[in-house]
């Protein structure tokens, strides 16, 4: 892991696109004196700082918490969603994962359902639309219940928590060769279906969310598990199998 060089010189190839309607192109930048301790986004901040000083348009990219928990950062780095490290968001990726002299290709998530706003920023509202279609519990469940007021088997609680770890960053869609959203949708279906509060509406939920997902133009799953491998939160494809079951269960039994 990493190296001990004090600073690194990098060749960046970045997707630049002025607006949603602009054609866009890959643009080369040289960046010198990059610290291996910088995060990937700090490296981009450094580039933008320079671009602003030069009176040029800075590179637009999404970010928010920079703690790996909000799901805002994205980026296809050298052909991999969130870069080369396992279970790591782009904001938690550090320049020590690269070598002095490396060429780094940086692109936005690419999917029909995620139109590009500008440069590396894409519109992920499609995910919000899927959630709005059924990824919730309709009744007001009140404030946090007393622990163990509703007995839930430990295994179910763990599985629901694993699914709930999804931050909705869409690396699954970005890395899937079919731009399928099934890992995201299945995580959102699973986190609710596994708990008694969410189970009540599980019959309608899978049907509604999958219908929305299909309508938005995401691709179809071919069970390659690139989504699982790219997921910064380690959501696994057994959730997709659960969604497949939930969908059939709902389709057959929901009136």
């Amino acid at each position: 892991m990493g190296n001990n060089t004090v600073s690194m010189n990098l060749n960046l190839k970045i997707w630049r696109q002025k607006s949603a309607t602009d054609k866009g192109e890959m643009v080369d930048y040289k960046l010198t004196d990059v610290s291996p301790d910088m995060s990937f986004l700090e490296m981009l901040d450094m580039l933008n700082d320079r671009l602003i000083r030069e009176g040029k348009d800075p590179v637009a990219f999404d970010h928010d918490c920079r703690e790996g928990i909000c799901g805002m950062c994205s980026l296809m780095i050298n052909g991999q969603a969130h870069g080369p490290e396992r279970e790591t968001t782009t904001c938690q990726l550090h320049m020590r994962s690269f070598k002095n002299g490396d060429t780094i290709v940086i692109e936005p998530w690419r999917a029909k359902a995620f139109p590009i706003h500008k440069d590396l920023m894409v519109d992920r509202s499609a995910f919000d639309e899927i959630i709005a279609a059924g990824g919730y519990v309709s009744v007001n469940t009140g404030h946090a219940p007393d622990a163990n007021a509703i007995p839930i088997p430990k295994e179910n609680a763990d599985l629901a928590m694993d699914a709930a770890a999804c931050i909705g960053c869409a690396a699954c869609v970005a890395s899937c060769k079919n731009a399928s959203a099934m890992l995201f949708v299945s995580a959102k279906i699973s986190q609710l279906a596994l708990l008694p509060q969410g189970e009540a509406e599980s019959k309608q939920r899978a049907e509604a969310m999958v219908a929305k997902m299909d309508e938005l133009g995401f691709g179809n799953c071919t069970n390659e598990a690139e989504c699982e491998a790219s997921c910064p939160k380690g959501i696994d494809i057994s959730n997709i199998a659960r969604m497949n079951r939930e969908f059939i269960k709902g389709g057959l039994t929901n009136r």
Partner: peptide, 14 residues
Amino acid sequence: ENHKARPQKYYMKK
């Protein structure tokens, strides 16, 4: 359908 779900391909995909 899968082909249509990503109209613009990646410059680099690994």
